[in-house]
Nucleic acid binder design. Structure first.
Lengths: 233, 233
DNA sequence: CGATTCTTTGACACCTATCAATCTTAGTGG
DNA sequence: CCACTAAGATTGATAGGTGTCAAAGAATCG
């Protein structure tokens, strides 16, 4: 029995398009790997020797300036694919936000496998196109939105992402959810400072739009108000 | 003789991976289209009925907030691919920055063709991965760099892009080049206002790092200085 | 329970946006 | 061809939003 049979994301990860034989073959070149929160799996600028499926947990993709300013350019969820196939060195680091479980392949073995399985490449293409759309949407937020709009947009986005991911299928946006991010990491996603994020969250709380029972959980109590905030601070 | 035989970018566009038969077939479902500077080819939110290869000219990809603030999220050059294949509606508009020539396909016909030609999908995947890297690099600029750093980074990027595109192959960064962008469009790429862009260009000129013989052409006279500016305003 | 880390809150400064005026360039019609 | 007009770019003055610096308050972990 291949370990794919017990995989939590076998129906959602890119492998889901593969036939049994191909899945067996892929299983032979992959291996499970557990990583602890905070552990970095891929380093920016590295030769990026690995790619992986995310089985469980969340990870951040980051880039940094020469003098250490950091930006989170993506977040991955279970069933997402990480790493940079096909020859380029990785342009960002990948670090676990929570304890996580990966299904890891060497880049070269994955590249070879993918080229012989067009269905897999098609699936990867569709996901990459989706990631590109998402990245470009985020560029609008970073380039043109105020701090107030950014924080409100972020809460709405996280609510949708965290609410719609259950294995039972999409459940819609969650009114209440736990952020897997510190204030610093939130700031690194939004292109702000921790102080500004903190103040904006306080403002939304004072305005009665959200509750913050503890510093990691958010409860949205006024969707209309929050959505209004997300489009004109 | 198919029109592909006379195509300016036949060796660089995604079609370059196709065999003769496949190229003929693709040629049958595509058509040439000339667009004038300022003309919009694809509208944000549309069903995105077309995709295309850029044969000549440059175009911008844009998204906008509900109240009209605009952001340029990408620029395309000859041999680039535009549009959103595979079912999603387009998340950005595509507008010509210069007069341009396209090789247009209906999305549905292109989708069908691509699925039967894995080599084409592979090429598209590689390009999309590259675009994603580029978009994420830009997120660092938008989220973490000062106006001075942004403008300097922009000039360096444009120099490399415009210098390295000749059909004879890469020629390296150009010391002198003509921006296909107005100040407003430059601001829309950098997440700044026209006034700030103008002031930063003036500052670089006063510092002797660039010359601005007319408002569209830039000459870089101090690469080391400009590169220094791009990393700590 | 103490120490460390993270977060919040406050005071202040600076960068960039905004508003406004001038100057330049490009386009148009006489 | 030139004046006129409109659009784009520059320059200046001002104000507001965020960053920075600093301190105090929670939460986490040993």
């Amino acid at each position: 029995m291949s370990s794919c049979d017990t995989c939590l994301v076998r129906n959602r990860a890119i492998c889901s398009v593969l036939e049994t034989d191909a899945l067996d073959e892929l299983n032979r070149i992959g291996r499970r790997k557990n990583v602890r929160r905070g552990e970095t799996v891929i380093w920016e600028g590295d030769d990026a020797p690995i790619v992986a499926n995310v089985i469980d947990g969340m990870l951040k993709l980051t880039t940094a300036t020469g003098d250490g300013r950091e930006m989170i350019v993506g977040i991955t969820y279970p069933s997402d694919f990480i790493g940079r196939p096909f020859g380029a060195s990785s342009s960002n680091s990948v670090t676990a936000l929570t304890d996580a479980q990966l299904c890891v392949f060497t880049r070269s073995s994955f590249d070879g496998f993918a080229k012989q399985h067009p269905g897999l490449e098609h699936e990867l293409l569709e996901r990459t196109l989706g990631e590109l759309d998402r990245a470009r949407d985020w560029m609008l937020l970073l380039g043109r939105k105020s701090a107030a709009e950014r924080v409100a947009s972020f809460l709405i986005e996280m609510s949708k992402r965290l609410g719609g991911r259950a294995c039972e299928g999409p459940t819609g946006p969650a009114d209440r959810f736990e952020l897997p991010l510190s204030r610093q990491q939130t700031a690194d996603i939004l292109g702000l400072t921790i102080e500004t994020v903190s103040r904006q969250l306080g403002r939304l709380r004072d305005a009665g739009m959200i509750l913050t029972p503890d510093r990691r959980t958010i409860e949205i109590t006024d969707w209309a108000g929050l959505e209004h905030e997300s489009e004109r601070g």
